[in-house]
């Protein structure tokens, strides 16, 4: 895992979800561990798309499958 990329991911999560950076680990589940509902995840993904300058938006179908920080991070990395 690229730590520099993950640090930028963590910063987005802290800003949008208002959680502590220490909570944002790959195994953290959005709903159970970070108290983030589906709209929170949409907002986080928008922030990630902007932070990483993704030219291609992450489609809703892919988002629906995402339950953990690690999964979301992998999707972002795959679009870079």
């Amino acid at each position: 895992m690229d730590q520099e990329l993950f640090n930028r991911f963590v910063k987005c999560a802290v800003d949008t979800l208002k959680v502590d950076a220490a909570q944002v680990v790959p195994a953290a589940r959005f709903k159970e561990d970070l108290d983030a509902d589906s709209l929170d995840v949409v907002e986080l993904v928008m922030a990630l798309e902007e932070e990483f300058g993704l030219s291609e938006n992450i489609p809703e179908e892919e988002l629906a499958e995402v339950t953990t920080v690690g999964q979301a991070f992998d999707i972002v990395v795959s679009k870079l």
């Binding site: 709209l39 949409v42 907002e43 928008m46 798309e49 902007e50 938006n57």
Partner: peptide
């Protein structure tokens, strides 16, 4: 300024 994709879900 940024397009439809940036409009908040809230």
């Amino acid at each position: 300024e940024k397009g439809e994709r940036r409009v908040s879900p809230f």
